[in-house]
Nucleic acid binder design. Structure first.
Length: 956
DNA sequence: TTGTACGCGCTTTTT
DNA sequence: GCGCGTACAA
């Protein structure tokens, strides 16, 4: 029989002991009596390097400490404890992701047969996320995708869902888990053969779920220090090799998996329910009596493992499956000695006593499990003997752990302890009636929890079929042209889709309907939503302005000489601009801008200073039959103007033209629209002039206001209902806009009025700001380490997944500090537009991360939590040194766009010192901040720095 | 053709 | 503060 502890950590994981290195593990394993030990943390590059250096392969998938190191250390192992310690390569990965609208946090234990396969896996994982900052990395990768990746890298991988019952980070966790294994792993479930049951549950609890019958239930220590090794462990009868372990886990008991060594589950940190902050500990039955809420603070209780097991159980307490494996419940020897000596387990006296026992009797597990009581009595005294006798018989007194607080397991009652003082003959006492056996009478199986109340939004959820009244008015209007002023989060895309569907339903042909967007992405999404809403029959054309122009030009040329047409590639165009600019003694960027602006006006005559250079540019393109992107719209307009037949065919083609983001059109685009508009055409434009932020690229929001003049008789509509942001977020965003009065603006009405006030904080430096953001995000995600989860009762830590969060800034230049701080905190992060495609893993698009992006890039997107950073003088509005700034109103709208990306929580920040382009300044707050009316922002102060918590804080 | 020193200038972004 | 482009040397 061998003892295996396969889930441990190295010193590279958070909150772990500094001496967690191969040498100390080798010593500690022998003192404990472990034959087969997980390496832990193989994903961490430094630990991987250390393992590669200090371990040598046995050839059967196991590794041993290098013989020279063994020789140097042998003296530190008590003689009766010495044994061969083999290592298997193991790691734990934390997957934090969104599935089915719920944040999931699942930890997985992974074993690999050799360093080469680990290296392959690490390479893949390194591309998907940050495996450098923590030995237990956090990936925004669905646990199922992680399993798939592991199988792809190494088919013989052993993949074990870790400590499956802990509330915060596990497969069945009450906070962020699933109700069934299949729910998590889908069709890959057959690749899972074992489940790790964790400290807070033991086999009898797990036997109550018939769904677990086919799995091997394993137990490991999840140690964060050498002293905690083998708190729980596996008992194997197979040889200590990788392949034999894999076969044992996959097969019946005879295959080599004998059973487990267990904690008394009551001692686990999450056995019962409760609130640590409120000092409330409840049994599952008591929790039900209180309706799941804390009797002190009224907030939801942290539901423990016992409760969760009862929730999912389909058998009564005490049931046993047909096939079950052996288990033993143990108390760690230092704790047991501590009780006998009436001292803490980490005191010097206990250590000395432990040392003496190890020297005389052998490893800790041998002492706990097998050593004859007489030997124990003779070496450790009669009381120790009695303590071990009681433990082996399960006669213990328990106080269940709850909400992160370890439980307590005692062997003697208080009365006994009192009696014991000064008495020598204690071992003769029979256990008191008060010392209950750990088999407790429990409540009957609990009915399944009722499903959560229907979400508040369901009645008006924009994802559903129906339109709200103001949307319906605009969607159903058939009286001619119309323009819709649609604020952020008002269901704009939905209105477009439903208008198109309504037209189709009334009998309009798909060919008569055209939808126009600015980006291919928007066109793709609109097309997809339309296909979902109107799956029957042909689809209307959904195109960008440029794609539309291209079609028109193609048709014009077919009719004429059929000249070849292609779009100039950017590289070529830049080279051309550079060449001409040099000749003109202009800056290439100025030339580019001037050409573009001219083409957008549709004027025939360019400004005289531009004319010769424009002519050179156009000749160069025409010589190769090329057009640039502005030409696509311009040339289409000109073709329609000069070719009456062409114009007629296009004007008659569409009865309905729907245009998205109308605040972003330029003159050429408006002209193109007009040229497509015949007497029977209805143009429906939708947009929001308060979100016009692309003036610098030629967009002119004034076309929005004059739509009714460009398209005669147009009706005006407005969408005020906001589905996205809660009341306080909308109030702050609209308060800001008040500084730019507009009589045609209507207030936005939040569907969800309640929520926390947006907050504003000033930090000393960009680094401090980045660290603050990282710390806040770590709290919101919860799960960087347990302390963060347990630390802030009432803040709902762990409510969010990485992909629920975005950090927005004015300039890309702010991204590096943020990225660095977030990576250091172990938060999975992606910086928009900054990942080269060739480095992207095929699974990359599935990885879920915190997004870092510019306020511009955030337009059209939304997140439950948004941080807006760098709200400083000179940065917002941005005042480029030596250049004319954008109009302040456009920059204000940019902030408005940023604020209205947030659904639930909004955090604003600034730094009192900022270095930008080599210059360090001490900027005051952005003037826009003072334009947000007082009382709509909560002013926060940086928390005073507390001294770093001790490395061992996790286990007290 | 390649190495290196120097100086300039620095948003936001789509097709 | 740094990257990129240009100028000039080898």
């Amino acid at each position: 029989m061998i003892v295996a502890d396969l889930h441990i950590h190295s010193r590279y994981s958070r909150a772990t002991a500094r001496d967690l290195d191969p040498e100390h593990l080798w010593i500690a394993a022998q003192r404990k009596g472990i034959d087969l030990l997980g390496s832990g943390d193989f994903t961490h590059p430094a630990w991987f390097a250390e393992l590669s250096e200090k371990l040598v392969e046995t050839g059967d998938g196991a590794y041993v400490l290098r013989p020279d190191l063994q020789g140097a250390l042998a003296g530190q192992v008590p003689a009766p404890c010495r044994r061969e310690v083999r290592f298997l390569l193991s790691a734990e990965i934390s997957s934090i992701y969104k599935r089915g609208g719920k944040t999931r946090k699942v930890h997985s234990l992974i074993l690999m047969p050799d360093l080469a396969s680990v290296a392959r896996l690490n390479q893949r994982l390194g591309r998907l996320g940050n495996i450098v900052s923590d030995g237990r990395p956090i990936l925004g990768l669905d646990a199922k995708d992680l399993l798939e990746l592991c199988l792809e890298v190494e088919p013989s991988v052993i993949f074990i869902p870790a400590h499956i019952w802990t509330p915060w980070f596990s497969l069945f966790g009450s906070k962020s888990g699933f109700d069934a294994i299949e729910e998590c792993f889908g069709e890959l479930t057959p690749h899972i053969h074992a489940l790790e049951t964790g400290l807070s549950s033991d086999p009898p609890m797990n036997w109550r779920l018939s769904a677990l019958d086919r799995f091997t239930l394993v137990s490991h220590s999840d140690a964060h220090s050498p002293a905690k090794l083998a708190r729980e462990a596996d008992l194997l009868t197979c040889p200590p090799t990788y392949a034999d372990l894999a076969a044992a886990l996959a097969g019946p008991a005879e295959a080599g998996f004998h059973g487990t060594l267990e904690f008394f589950p009551d001692e686990g940190k999450y056995h019962l329910d409760g609130h640590r902050k409120c000092g409330v500990r409840l049994t599952p039955a008591e929790t039900r009596e209180h309706g799941g809420r804390c009797p002190v603070c009224g907030k939801p209780l942290t539901v423990g493992v016992l409760n969760r097991v009862e929730e999912l159980a389909d058998r009564p307490e005490g049931s046993k499956p047909a096939r079950l494996r052996h288990f033993e419940s143990l108390i760690p020897l230092p704790e047991l000695i501590g009780e006998v000596m009436r001292q803490g387990p980490a005191t010097k006296g206990v250590s000395q006593a432990l040392e003496a026992l190890l020297e005389r009797l052998g490893p800790e597990l041998h002492i706990l499990r097998e050593a004859p009581l007489e030997d124990l009595q003779s070496v450790g005294g009669p009381i120790l003997g009695e303590a071990l006798r009681r433990m082996r018989q399960g006669q213990v007194i328990t106080e269940g752990g709850y909400d992160g607080e370890f439980g307590k397991v005692h062997l003697f009652s208080n009365e006994e302890h009192a009696e014991l003082k000064g008495q020598k003959g204690f071992w003769k006492l029979a256990p008191k009636a008060g010392a209950r056996s750990r088999a407790k009478a429990g409540p009957a199986a609990r009915p399944k929890a009722s499903p959560p109340a229907a979400p508040l939004l369901s009645a008006l959820d924009p994802a559903r079929e129906g339109l709200n009244p103001e949307q319906a008015l605009a969607a159903d209007y058939r009286g001619g042209h119309l323009i819709v002023r649609a604020g952020p989060g008002s269901g704009k895309t939905r209105l477009l889709v439903q208008r198109a569907v309504g037209l189709l339903r009334e009998g309009a042909a798909a060919e008569e309907i055209l939808l126009i967007t600015f980006t291919r992405k928007a066109a793709g999404e609109l097309g997809q939503r339309l296909a979902e809403a109107w799956p029957q029959g042909r689809q209307p054309l959904t195109a960008t302005f440029h794609a539309l122009g291209r079609r028109i030009i193609s048709q014009a040329r077919e009719g004429a000489n059929g000249g070849d047409m292609a779009i100039v590639e950017d590289e070529k165009r830049q080279a051309l601009l550079k060449r001409i600019a040099a000749q003109a003694e202009w800056k290439p960027s100025d030339l580019e801008l001037a050409i573009s602006r001219h083409k957008q006006t549709l004027d025939q005559e360019p400004p005289s200073d531009l004319a010769p250079w424009l002519a050179l540019y156009q000749e160069a393109l025409a010589g190769e039959g090329l057009l640039d992107l502005d030409d696509l719209v311009r040339e289409a307009c000109l073709a329609l103007r000069s070719d009456a037949e062409l114009a007629r065919s296009w004007r008659e083609r569409f009865r309905h033209v729907l245009v998205d983001e109308y605040q972003d059109v330029n003159q050429a685009q408006v002209e193109l629209l007009k040229a497509l508009t015949g007497p029977r055409t209805q143009v429906a434009a939708i947009g929001d002039p308060d979100q016009a932020i692309y003036g610098f690229r030629g967009a002119d929001r004034s076309f929005f206001a004059r739509f009714a003049r460009d398209f005669a008789g147009a009706a005006e509509f407005g969408l005020q209902q906001n589905y996205r942001s809660n009341g306080p977020i909308l109030a702050a965003a609209q308060g800001l806009l008040e500084a730019d009065p507009d009589p045609s603006r209507r207030p936005l009405l939040p569907l969800r009025p309640e929520g926390p006030l947006p907050s504003l904080i000033a930090l000393a430096s960009p680094e401090a700001e980045a660290q603050w953001v990282a710390a806040r995000i770590a709290e919101l995600i919860g799960g960087m380490d347990s302390r963060q989860v347990e630390g802030r009762a009432g803040e709902n830590p762990g409510e969010y997944a990485p992909r629920d969060i975005a950090v927005l800034y004015r300039l890309h230049a702010l991204a590096p500090a943020l990225q660095k701080a977030l990576q250091k905190a172990g938060v999975p992060v992606q910086v928009a537009g900054r990942t080269p495609l060739e480095e992207t893993d095929p699974l990359d698009f599935k990885a879920q991360r915190v997004s870092l992006l510019t306020m511009h890039a955030a337009k059209g997107l939304e997140w439950p939590v948004v941080f807006v950073v760098g709200l400083e003088e000179g940065l917002l509005p941005y005042l480029p040194p030596g250049k004319p700034p954008s109009p302040a109103s456009e920059e204000r709208r940019l902030l408005f766009v940023a604020l209205t990306r947030a659904r639930e929580r909004l955090y604003l920040s600034r730094a009192a010192r900022r270095s930008l382009f080599g210059e360090t300044r001490q900027p005051g707050p952005s003037p826009f901040l003072t334009q947000i009316p007082e009382g709509l922002l909560k002013i926060e102060k940086p928390r005073a720095r507390r001294p770093r918590a001790s490395q061992l804080g996790l286990f007290k």
